[in-house]
Simulated scan of single mutants.
Amino acid sequence: MPASLKIPVLPSVKAFREWRQSLDNRSIGFVPTMGALHDGHMKLVDRSLSENSLTVVSIFVNPAQFAPHEDLSSYPRTFDGDMRRIHEAVGRDSIDSSETPKCAVFLPTVEDMYPSGIVQNIEDQKGTFVQVKGYEEQMEGKSRPKFFRGVATIVTKLFSVVQPTRAYFGQKDIQQGLLLRRMVRDLLISHPLPENLIIVPTQREKEDFLALSSRNAYLTSIERPFAPTLYQALTAGRQVWEEISGSGSREGVVAAAREVIKRRQEEAIQAGVEMRFDYVEVNDPDTFDVVNWRRKERPEGQPVIISGALWIGRTRLIDNLLSGDTKEIFNQL
């Protein structure tokens, strides 16, 4: 492999900080991940490579994002495959002749990231944690209490170490990206600035538009055909919201989405697949509050998030679609 394609792997905070100090003032793009990289992650990496002199990809399965009953121990860990994907991405990007790499991988340990220790039971946790109060209880936060506490905490720590110029997150986790943008603003974090926290549109399977996710690997061959149900339900809901001749109400959105899920549930039962509805909701992208406007009351171009979650067997899938003027969400100002 050419020297220009060698990618440093930095296994501790100390090693990363020493390496970081050796760099000049080049722009740094940051893609935080929990590994099990797929094409959605690589879209973020490609975007960072195109917009920055150096890209850092972190791989860290964060214990604070998992409740005691969730899948921390079984979450897919595929480091060798992840490194192959990163090498391929860097190889696709134009490589200069300098000895400074275009990309680095940060692999911190749990002990590094949680010096006071970490257990999954929140009541037993000790140390410093970050909350974005009033914004982490809605949408995903309603189904997964304290989840965003874990997200905000680990991303604050990662930003502190990496000090990126820009950071990249996927739209599939839309609440996460928007909440972190608010956190960066509230805490006066300078690396990255709020406007440099970039949300990239969701990457989907070409044949059925299933949102790419590391947890898709849990789906069995019998379950996989039912996985696009959530996207289909959200699409039906968005059509109701945008229908010019209708009332465009939140209740209509939820009803249309649930009708699609109900129909597919009947098919799933016949196939021996368990499908469980979690939620479908319409939310404001700034406050995350539930939106109850009807069409005649709606501000012109007002964006909304139509999101949901659905269980297929033991796999919990999430997805969202946007409606209205989304320029601000995607930093297209």
Score class of each variant (00 low, 15 high):
Ser221Cys: 06
Asp319Ile: 12
Ala167Arg: 02
Ser53Asp: 15
Gln65Trp: 05
Gly134Met: 09
Asp186Met: 15
Phe16Arg: 03
Pro76Thr: 10
Pro108Val: 06
Ser12Met: 09
Met42Asn: 06
Leu44Gly: 02
Ile198Ala: 00
Ser58Thr: 07
Gly134Trp: 06
Leu10His: 05
Ile95Gln: 14
His41Cys: 02
Leu179Cys: 10
Arg314Trp: 04
Val162Arg: 03
Leu5His: 11
Ile59His: 02
Gly324Phe: 09
Ser53Leu: 07
Ala217Asn: 06
Lys142Cys: 13
Lys43Gln: 14
Ser94Arg: 13
Glu137Phe: 05
Ile306Phe: 01
Val240Ala: 04
Ala36Leu: 13
Ser58Ala: 03
Arg182Pro: 00
Ser4Cys: 07
Glu111Tyr: 09
Phe159Leu: 13
Asp46Thr: 10
Thr153Leu: 08
Leu188His: 10
Val9Cys: 02
Gln125Lys: 10
Asn292Leu: 12
Gly272Leu: 10
Val9His: 01
Leu230Lys: 14
Ala167Asp: 01
Leu210Ile: 15
Gln21Val: 14
Arg47Pro: 00
Tyr218Met: 12
Glu223Ser: 04
Ser160Arg: 13
Tyr218Ala: 10
Gly272Met: 11
Val57Gly: 02
Tyr75Ser: 11
His87Met: 05
Gln175Ala: 05
Gly91Thr: 07
Glu223Cys: 12
Gly272Ser: 09
Ala36Thr: 02
Glu328His: 00
Asp124Pro: 00
Asn292Cys: 07
Gly246Val: 07
Val9Asn: 01
Asn25Gly: 12
Leu333Met: 09
Met275Ile: 14
Asp93Gln: 10
Gly35Ile: 14
Leu193Asp: 07
Arg204Thr: 11
Glu99Phe: 03
Asn196Ser: 04
Val162Gln: 06
Phe16Asn: 02
Lys6Cys: 00
Ala167Glu: 02
Asp208Ser: 10
Arg276Trp: 04
Ile86Phe: 02
Asp286Met: 10
Leu107Cys: 04
Asn25Leu: 14
Ala3Cys: 08
Val240Glu: 03
Phe66Met: 14
Leu44Glu: 02
Asp71Trp: 00
Gly301Ile: 08
